[in-house]
């Protein structure tokens, strides 16, 4: 892709009430990255990591805000919510650990793979969470 003068920032509000529309921000980001000429595997990694984050925000936090910052060689995804926070981050990062309710599981989510997938597909991932205040997850995908 062409050299960018300054980073491009995409901002999305993630609707916390509508589970069926979850993923709209990720799908839009996928389109934007494709238009920028980013390679398909990078787009796939960013899209999946962001979608998992979006789903988490809908399930646990009644929505939130997603920022995607595209600069030369790096795409940064910042997901911020004012949800319940994560009490034990180490536990939450384990594959299979989930606090999702049954109705979410019947839709095929809630398998305890969300956070591990976000880590799997990104080069850096940081979780800042305060119980009762909210969670901010910052991920970087280098390309």
């Amino acid at each position: 892709m062409n050299q960018m003068a300054e980073p491009l920032v995409f901002r999305f509000d993630v609707d916390g009430d509508n589970f069926t529309s979850a993923g709209q921000a990720s799908v839009q980001v996928k389109k934007n990255l494709r238009q920028l000429g980013i390679d398909p595997e990078t787009i796939r990694r960013v899209s999946i990591a962001m979608y998992e984050g979006e789903i988490n925000m809908v399930i646990h936090a009644k929505g939130g805000q997603a920022d995607v910052i595209v600069s030369d060689g790096c795409i940064e995804i910042i997901l911020a919510d004012k949800g319940p926070g994560i009490a034990n981050i180490e536990q939450a990062m384990q594959e299979g650990f989930s606090t999702a309710p049954d109705n979410i599981r019947s839709l095929g989510f809630g398998a305890g793979m969300g956070l591990p997938n976000m880590k799997r597909y990104t080069d850096e991932m940081q979780i800042d969470s305060v119980v009762g205040e909210g969670t901010t997850i910052t991920m970087k995908v280098k390309y």
């Binding site: 595997e41 796939r44 999946i48 979608y51 998992e52 095929g108 989510f109 398998a111 793979m113 997938n117």
Partner: peptide, 26 residues
């Protein structure tokens, strides 16, 4: 399990499932 699929399925594959809710499209 959708997150499992996202974690393990490769690009350009055929994904065989019995899950049929709207989220499979995304």
């Amino acid at each position: 399990l959708l997150s499992w699929v996202m974690g393990r399925a490769k690009a350009d594959g055929a994904w065989i499932t019995i899950m049929s809710n709207i989220n499979i499209v995304a």
